[in-house]
Amino acid sequence: MKMQYFIQGGDFSAGGRASTEVKSIIKQFNISPEKIRRIAIALYEAEMNVVAHAFKGKMDVDLRPDHIRVVFIDEGPGIEDIDKAMEEGFSTASDEVRQMGFGAGMGLPNIKRNCDEMLLSSVPGKGTRLEIKVLF
């Protein structure tokens, strides 16, 4: 089963809509509540990264009997140093974004903790690609 969602950069009021929708869809399948929670957390953090940092992006979901694979591709500033971005506490979020409680520098580590495979690549000045896989 495949689904695609558009994510608008900077739109915090709609932020989280795509991941919330995917959560309610996968709840209809025979997937453990713990897995559902992990998937929902990883997707929410990834979606909010696009909202907080990129101009726009899309989220492609591929749901299979034994796993879910979700790919986020955005157009935006990209990530200069991926190792640094993966460190807890490191963030390049703006003051405005931080005031809302985002930009704690824990989004990417939270994603890693809640998935089985994570692939992150980026071209600075162009955009970022994040692939997340969770096994059932």
Binding site: R37, I41, M100, G101, F102, M106, G107, P109
Partner: peptide, 19 residues
């Protein structure tokens, strides 16, 4: 900090915040 809550809070907890 939202991501801090996502990372550290546990199910069935009360969350105290100014957000």
């Amino acid at each position: 900090l939202l991501s801090d809550v996502i990372g550290k809070a546990q199910e069935d907890m009360i969350w105290i915040t100014t957000q």
